[in-house]
Amino acid sequence: METDYGGFKTTKFDSVVNWSRKFSLFQYPFVTACCGMEYMAAACSHYDISRFGAEIPRFSPRQADVLWVVGTITHKMSPILKTIYEQMADPKWVIAFGACASSGGFYQNYSVLQGIDRLIPVDLYIAGCPPRPEAVLDGLVELQNSIQNDGPTANGITPTAIRHKDQKADQLNRYFEISKKEVFENLQNPKSNRISTPGFTYSEDFVNVSPHIGYDSPRMQKDKAALKEK
């Protein structure tokens, strides 16, 4: 995004500044609940958030860029969260990590704030209960893209989803195309004589593999009837 500095357009300068901002995010991990476990997993060596530049957690809001709201926020906690957010200096971004921070999660009751976006503007929502570390890193990359493209005004005004709509649509289409083929191929048991294309049928060996469940899927019912006829 172009800005005016005393009458001069500064595009290259902005992109350099945003580049440096996105790869040196100082995080404030506002961790309250179970999502903290997955935050720790993403931050530690196996998944390693420091590859993305967001290495050090700064436990003071004055020194932090990104507020990671990790876990359930109750109404009792909400004034504290608001104070922490207000103490952070601009430019700042907020990540709602997990289902409870995004929307209240599965707690719909008298004590849980139904999503922190009722309180403070949120830039990124990472869904999951808790989200896998790979989802956390994917979200972080999206936030970095939005910082690069939109700069400090990314704060709740131009959400990434709208900006990169076409890219997201391509990703989803690709996902649905490959999933049908790859899922069935990879599920093939070597001992079975099932056909690997989506039109597979259960063989005699596998049609009664879980009688204790007491439920037959439509595919299973059809195949059982077909086998009975045989």
């Binding site: 109404h75 704030l113 139904q114």
Partner: peptide, 20 residues
């Protein structure tokens, strides 16, 4: 709140929340 006649999801926010 755990009395049965308290509506279980009636919220009493401590700070002013945005309108949703």
């Amino acid at each position: 709140p755990l009395r049965k006649d308290y509506p279980i999801d009636k919220q009493q926010p401590l700070v002013e929340l945005k309108e949703v």
